[in-house]
Each structure stands twice: as C-alpha cells, then as structure tokens.
Amino acid sequence: MELWFEEHNTDDVHFALRVKKQLFSQKSDFQQIDIYDTYEFGRVLVMDGAIMLTEKDEFIYHEMIVHVAMAVHPEVKKVLLIGGGDGGALRELCRYPGIEQIEMVEIDPLVVDVAKEYLPAVASAFSDERLNLIFADGLRYVRHLKREYDLLIIDSTDPFGPGESLFTREFYGNCSKGLREGGILINQHESPYYKNDAQEAHSIFSKTSKIFSTARVYQAHIPTYPSGHWLFGFMSNCWDPIKDHDPERWEGFGLKTRYYNSDLHKGAFSLPTYVRELLTEGRLIDD
C-alpha cells in the first residue's frame, strides 16, 4: 500500500509527499496536529492540513526569520517570539550569546510537546535559560507591551485558523508599540504566488507599511511551502535592511549557516517584478 499526504495549495493544486508512517495525530484546543515520517523530507509537522516544517528543509525558514534582523540591529538584547512553537526560530536565536532574554508566546502547548518529542533537532533550545515560555494568545499578550523589545519575530501559522489575529492591523499596531527605539519586527509574510496566499501577502504589506516607516519584504526558497517561494517582512522605524546591513559584525559571530549568508542578505530583498507589483498595487500574477 502506498500512503500519501496531500496538502491543498489551492482547489486545483495539491502537493503530495509519500509517507512511511504517521507518527502522531491529535486535535488540540486550537488545531489539528499531525506528524508524518516521509521518504523525501523526513519528519513533517502538519497543522490543520498545512505543512509547517519538514526535517529536511526547515533550516531555510528558521535561518531566514532570525539572521536577517540580527545582521542589521547592532545590539539585540531582548527578543519576543510570537508563535514558533516548534522551536526552530528559538534554536537560531539561542546561537547569539549577546541576546539576554527571549520571551516566546505560543498559543498551543501541544505544538511544543509534539515538537520536543518528534522533532528534537528543531526543538533543541527549550532548555535555554534565557527563555521565558508563555502559553497565551499573541494578540492579547502584545496589547500590554510598552517599548520592551529590540526584536519581535512573528512566526505564525497561516491567517486561516488560530493564527488569524496575528495578521491584523491591531496586532501590528500593538507590536510596534512593544518595540524599543531601533527595534525590528520580522514576520512570516506568506507566499506571493497562489491567489489566496498572495492576497494575504498584499494585505499584510498594506497594513505594515502604514505603521512602520521602513517596511521591506525579503524572500527565500522553501521547497515544501506552497509554490516554494516564501516571503518575510522586515519592519522598523529606524533601520534599513540594506543600508544598515553590517556583514562584518555578523561574520564576527562565527555562525555556521546553510542557507543564509551575507551576500544572500542583500539579494533576498531584490524581489521579482510581479512580487513588487503584488505588494504595492495588489496586482495578482494572472491579473
């Protein structure tokens, strides 16, 4: 018997992985969580039917959501991570000794438990003593913030489901209030390709660009995400990701990375024309 996991990218496009075995399946208070062991991508974390990460390509997403900001901000001491219950972004953050405090606000405790048990290489930093792990609604948490963080990372699921409120104007507005002077906000910015994702990417950009004086988008190639082309947002009221990029300082950290590097940092902000048009005008690829 052949077992396949299919992710519905659109009504007409499915992405399928051949599965060795299903390792875990449970509905939490917030979402359906599954772990599959697959032939090509190793273990795969799936939430509400959407691939969150695979063992094989997760490094791309997690390096890109962390290192870009770390190569711009001169001194990140306090970080707020919203979502990211799998621990991948946390793992990358914990590689910086200069970071003194990491607060992680995840809505679903089961995601953390599952990651620790089935994805130990991703969930490797939960014992870091700089971490303060809080299980709470992200939107509710940021409401109370007042200029506290140097770096705020939104590592959320898609805007359909428990991550819904993390794509709203009120969320970004309250996040901006939570940043210290010179703070940077990074978010996963959906994909520019398929219509539903692309509309969301445009909607995110039109909200964030109204709130931050600098709102830039960068990209990465993530094979298991819809269309493989994924975006991230870089927002700040102080730093520009290119002009203020400080490769020497970052190289000084001596981190070994497999996707991110200082040349790619600049290139990642060079967007295809259709993506630029999508972000600024909302024009879809087949418009």
């Binding site: 509710r140 409401r143 409120s165 709203t168 969320f171 507005g173 309250n174």
Partner: peptide, 12 residues
C-alpha cells in the same frame, strides 16, 4: 479571538 481583536484595535 474576535473579542481580543476588538480590544486590541481599540487600544491601537
């Protein structure tokens, strides 16, 4: 989630 959004929006 809807109540949280309303409260957060009012704060903003």
């Amino acid at each position: 989630v809807a109540i949280e959004r309303l409260i957060a929006a009012l704060g903003d």
